[in-house]
């Protein structure tokens, strides 16, 4: 698509979509949203980029290798957080009993493992959406 309007609007709007996605992921424990919805917003920003600039440009921006590493590291991060609970003397994926930093309810840095797990889920969902879209529209 060689449309000057679509390209200009996309270049303007993609950073705002990504900032909004990161906001939804980071505030998952105190406001509506969470890892899945924020990750979907982040992934659809890259899908919009791919649709308006074409696949070669998008895969130069975020190659297949990077998305596959992000995906695998998202799920590994989740499991490592769970194992840290065992190391600190609790059960798998335990939150308060393991002694993570709980803080004051309602603040950004609080609630122990919940923001960490939400961050992992967000990265995983975003990279999964990007990889699925790039793989399906790829033709050769």
């Amino acid at each position: 698509m060689d449309d000057i309007i679509v390209k200009t609007i996309t270049r303007l709007i993609v950073p705002f979509i990504q900032v909004y996605g990161i906001f939804v992921i980071l505030h998952g424990h105190i406001s509506p949203g969470g890892g899945f919805s924020g990750g979907a917003v982040l992934g659809s920003s890259m899908i919009l980029f791919t649709l308006s600039f074409g696949l070669p440009m998008a895969s130069r921006k975020i190659p297949h290798k990077v998305t596959s590493i992000l995906e695998t590291s998202g799920i590994l991060w989740y499991i490592i957080i769970g194992l840290a609970g065992i190391y600190l003397g609790g059960k798998f994926l335990v939150n308060k009993e393991a002694g993570f930093f709980m803080g004051q309810a309602g603040e950004l840095i609080s609630a122990g493992i919940i923001p960490l797990l939400t961050l992992g889920i967000g990265i995983k969902v975003a990279s999964t959406m990007i990889t699925l879209f790039h793989t399906i529209i790829e033709e050769d």
């Binding site: 998952g28 424990h29 105190i30 406001s31 509506p32 969470g34 890892g35 995906e71 998202g74 799920i75 989740y78 499991i79 769970g82 798998f92 994926l93 939150n95 308060k96 709980m102 803080g103 004051q104 309810a105 309602g106 609080s110 609630a111 122990g112 493992i113 919940i114 797990l117 939400t118 889920i121 995983k124 969902v125 999964t128």
Partner: peptide, 29 residues
């Protein structure tokens, strides 16, 4: 009180039922 998270759904899916969510991410993978 237990998870220090006002968003109850986030507390359910990442604290009370976090192992369930691990399976969910495995489905995506």
């Amino acid at each position: 009180e237990e998870a220090h998270a006002p968003n109850v759904i986030a507390a359910i899916i990442t604290d009370y039922r976090a192992f369930d969510t691990l399976g969910e991410t495995t489905v995506l993978f």
